[in-house]
Design a protein around this nucleic acid. Structure first.
Length: 683
DNA sequence: GCAAGGTC
């Protein structure tokens, strides 16, 4: 008997061969693809790993011409399956010819079932099989694998069909609306405007936040702080009223303040800060962005590379709970060989009992991301090193003891007003030793007790502005997408990358471009279903129904097609307005305001100095001679955003400068504006 | 040149 086992990827093919053969297997190459070979009793077994999906869905060639086909026609068009990679398919078929029994051992989830189904269908086209069976397992452990192959099941057809429904619905909606929007706004070729079940709600989320920021009207407020000292040690306290919206009130208080303050209350308390949970993809991407300053797409690319080199475990994972089978001591013992980690490992091992943290998401797909080997000396550089270090440190942090801190709160009376001071001190470093990235600086209060007198050294009167909600960082966005059920662990970073490539978003934290705003507006107004995450959650429900045979694939896809038809009906006669919306958006990009000559002021980058400034669109008049020489300098760092406002003093446009990690900053563009002299005087 | 989902 010749048995062929097909898996989703090479790594699992090898692992399965290893487990079923008790380590005694050979490797051969078929068209350069590894095939793992062993014997069991009278059975000859080959294991081959695919590379994910082997087929993808598409429309037949006549539908490929965007100009000649009305997008509406795509809704009911035939859908064909085409090979993703001819070589993989060829290698599979060669093995199929050899075998007389087939076992599908792809991942046990919807997409895995579909990959297995496609593989089995392709195999059946080569020859008839005595049997096609399915091994179901949810982890690549010896127990699970051996059990699964002892209890072979039938393929789970309805689960595969649910996967097909997902593919077809995504294609039909994506292609129809992408083409419609692109044609309507005449954005063709590489400038096409994409629409999709996951990317579009994500864009709308960002656009809504952008709108809130744009519409936000900042209010001035003042803070009153005192620098105090006790026995020469300085500390800062805030007035109990944290924000004053009327500065005359602060002036009054300032006059009352004396040179001494009385301690009314002083409290010190201790608390523990628990170590972080193990890394799943989302948590990892968030940390890579916040700590290593890498985009999710870049971080994922590096993680995949480290995984392929055997240095970290599988990076595409939802699970945040280590399996019982993970040997912590073994990992710690190789980490200990790195001088940078030696002390940390010692601290972990010195605990009476090592208890790893657990996250909220518990599944058995893969273990959370952890280091699997120490990289050879100097083999990693730059970003690779950062990512490995992050994974190693996070792993060690999850096994480390809690951090112990001390909080101090003091209430001090000065001139009849109450001021509050807060102190913070780390008592035991705990997991900070492994993972120091978010360690707060110690800001201890001096030793104080009720009734003590302290000296007032300085009165600080600070003017501030209320802040709009923050922009999403890539890290926050990945987390938000996970929370809303948008995309998967393997696709979220790519979807965000896509939005960047389409020109819908830019920068970090993420800013929605004018084009992105225009597209989002069109989506929310005329393509409602794809503008919200509900389409995905509904699709998930319906796919469960297909898998459980409560609905047929045809029913679900058919219903989805009807809905799309009604969306397209609503778009009839909207082509012109869509085109105008998009056109206006593109024109508005970089626009700062009106020039006194009637021209438009926009951000221009000097060809010579590569520096940016604000220039007028009438710099050259059509006759090529006369010109408007109005220009304003700009700070060279940060994003420049139009506020639509003009300065009350000089009439020049007011812009917002958004600098990473600084608070947004509104300025009048005119460097000689009288308002600036006024401010100098105020200080 | 369309989507989203696997994997490299």
């Amino acid at each position: 008997m010749r048995t062929l086992i097909v898996t989703e990827k090479d790594k699992s093919a090898r692992r399965i061969a290893e487990i079923l053969s008790n380590g005694k297997f050979g490797t051969k190459k078929v068209l350069n693809f590894p095939v793992y070979v062993f014997r069991k009793d009278s059975q000859e077994i080959h294991v081959i790993g695919l590379k994910g999906h082997i087929l993808r869905v598409d429309f037949p060639p006549p539908y490929q011409n965007w100009q000649k086909v009305d997008p509406k026609e795509l809704i009911d068009a035939e859908i064909i399956k085409v090979p993703v990679n001819e070589l993989v398919l060829k290698a599979l078929k060669e093995e199929v010819v050899w075998a007389d029994e087939l076992i599908v051992a792809t991942d046990f989830d919807r997409e895995g079932e579909l990959i297995g189904y496609d593989a089995a269908e392709e195999a059946k086209r080569v020859k008839a099989f005595r049997s096609i069976k399915r091994a179901r397992f949810s982890a690549l452990t010896p127990q699970e694998i051996k059990e699964a192959f002892k209890n072979l099941q039938d393929p789970y057809l309805s689960l595969a069909l649910a996967g097909e429904a997902r593919q077809e619905i995504d294609l039909v909606w994506g292609a129809t609306l992408t083409r419609f929007l692109s044609l309507a706004s005449r954005r063709l070729g590489k400038h096409f405007l994409s629409v999709g079940r996951v990317q579009s709600p994500t864009l709308c989320l960002l656009a809504q936040r952008e709108k809130e920021i744009r519409d936000f009207k900042p209010t001035d407020y003042w803070q009153l702080k005192l620098v105090l000292a006790k026995n020469g040690q300085q500390f800062v306290v805030n007035h109990e009223k944290e924000r004053f919206f009327d500065h005359t009130q602060v002036e009054k208080i300032k006059k009352k303040l004396g040179e001494k303050g009385l301690v009314l209350e002083y409290e010190v308390s201790q608390r523990n800060i628990l170590p972080p949970s193990p890394f799943n993809t989302t948590q990892f991407l968030a940390a890579a962005s916040n700590i290593a300053r890498l985009s999710p797409a870049r971080a994922m690319q590096i993680a995949e590379d480290l995984y392929m080199r055997g240095l970290i475990s599988y990076p595409r994972v939802d699970n945040t709970v280590y399996p019982a089978s993970l040997n912590f001591k073994a990992v710690l013992s190789f980490l200990k060989k790195d001088p940078a980690y030696e002390e940390v490992v010692q601290a972990i091992l010195s605990q009476e009992k090592i208890v790893p943290t657990r996250g909220k998401k518990h599944s058995t797909d893969h273990p959370p991301i952890y280091p699997t080997a120490l990289p050879p000396l100097d083999s990693l550089r730059g970003a690779e090193k950062k990512i490995y270090d992050l994974v190693a440190r996070r792993f060690m942090a999850t096994l480390s003891p809690s951090v112990e801190v001390e909080d101090g709160v003091v209430t001090i009376e000065v001139g009849g007003e109450k001021f509050i001071g807060k102190g913070f001190r780390v008592l035991k470093e705990g997991w900070y030793l492994a993972y120091p990235f978010f360690r707060r600086k110690d800001e201890p209060l001096p030793a104080l007790k009720k009734g003590d007198w302290v000296e007032v050294l300085e009165v600080r009167f600070e003017k501030k502005q209320t802040q709009p909600p923050p922009r999403y960082s890539s890290a926050r966005l990945v987390q938000e997408m996970e929370r809303l059920g948008l995309g998967t662990k393997s696709t979220r970073h790519q979807i965000i990358q896509n939005l960047f490539e389409r020109g819908y978003i830019k920068g970090e934290p993420i800013q929605t471009t004018e084009l992105g705003m225009a597209v989002a507006e069109a989506l929310m107004r005329h393509m409602k279903p794809v503008s919200s995450p509900e389409m995905t959650s509904q699709l998930e429900d319906e796919m469960t129904e297909i898998a459980e045979q409560q609905k047929s694939k045809e029913q679900v896809v058919g219903h989805s097609r009807q809905l799309l038809k009604s969306v397209m009906k609503g778009l009839e006669g909207e082509k012109e307005s869509l085109r105008e919306t998009v056109k206006a958006g593109i024109k508005a990009e970089g626009l700062i305001g009106k020039c006194s000559c009637g021209g438009e002021l926009r951000v221009v980058v000097s060809r010579k100095s590569k520096k940016r400034f604000v220039g007028c669109s009438n710099y050259f008049k059509p006759d090529g001679k006369q010109k408007c020489s109005v220009s304003y300098p700009l700070p060279q760092k940060g994003t420049v955003a139009s506020t639509g406002e003009i300065c009350a003093f000089c009439g020049a446009p007011v812009v917002k400068i958004i600098n990473q990690r600084k608070r947004p900053w509104q300025i009048c563009l005119n460097p000689d504006c009288p308002s600036k002299d006024f401010k100098k005087e105020e200080k």
